[in-house]
């Protein structure tokens, strides 16, 4: 464990808590993409099945349980409890265009052709693109609430911090995992224009407005 990975996990944790608070406090999931949340739940389910097979640490287990539990809780809130506030008209990104290539890539490009390893690889590739429906929805609605912007900033920062973690681990432990690194870079690059808008607008108190 290093400071970058811990900061990344905390940023990820913060993002999920911000999202849950936003939905719970405002009793609305307006502006949030349910499709992205479904992809995240699928990502963590596929990646954390090893919860039952191999023990890494208490921290690792607690965080995995938390990420799985909160991803399903978010889906429950969006598709059941506050279903009436779910903006399905703007949440229209074709997720099959993500799932198919990611599945094929996981079958072709992996460290080992085993069930668990392919699930892990699938989850790494899927996580890289899982935010696309959300970013697409923000571009379609042309704006996002500030709280949603903070959620996206924390979520985007998590994998950016992981990149620093991988650099750190490469130089200190000579450890690297190209699949995780390349997917993590792609994932972070997808946030770039959002990060730009976040720093130039949201942090100056303006609403996140995208040029429609």
């Amino acid at each position: 464990m290093n400071v970058f990975r811990l900061a990344g996990d905390m940023s990820h944790l913060l993002a999920i808590i911000i999202l849950l608070l936003k939905i719970w406090k405002t009793r609305s999931c307006a502006g949030i993409s349910g499709r992205s949340q479904l992809l995240f739940a699928l990502t963590y389910t596929a990646r954390y099945l090893d919860l039952v097979t191999n023990w890494v640490s208490l921290y690792n287990t607690v965080m995995k349980v938390f990420f799985i539990a909160t991803s399903y809780a978010t889906i429950y809130l969006m598709y059941l409890k506050f279903k009436a506030t779910y903006d399905s008209n703007h949440d229209t990104f074709r997720v099959e265009f993500l799932l198919l290539p990611v599945t094929i890539l996981a079958l072709v490009l992996n460290h080992e052709f085993s069930f668990m390893e392919i699930l892990w690889t699938f989850s790494i590739y899927l996580e890289a693109v899982a935010i696309l429906p959300q970013l697409f929805m923000v571009s379609k609605t042309g704006e996002a609430e500030s709280i949603t912007s903070h959620y996206l900033f924390a979520l985007g920062s998590y994998r950016l911090l992981y990149i620093f973690n991988w650099i750190w681990r490469y130089y200190t432990e000579e450890y690297y995992d190209l699949i995780a690194i390349i997917a993590g870079v792609v994932q972070t690059v997808l946030y770039c224009d959002f990060f730009y808008l976040y720093f130039t607008k949201v942090l100056k108190g303006k609403k996140l407005q995208l040029p429609a």
């Binding site: 990975r5 690297y176 995992d177």
Partner: peptide
């Protein structure tokens, strides 16, 4: 060494 298949990261 390249990553073993036991993934210790979240």
């Amino acid at each position: 060494p390249e990553a073993s298949n036991s993934h210790d990261e979240l």
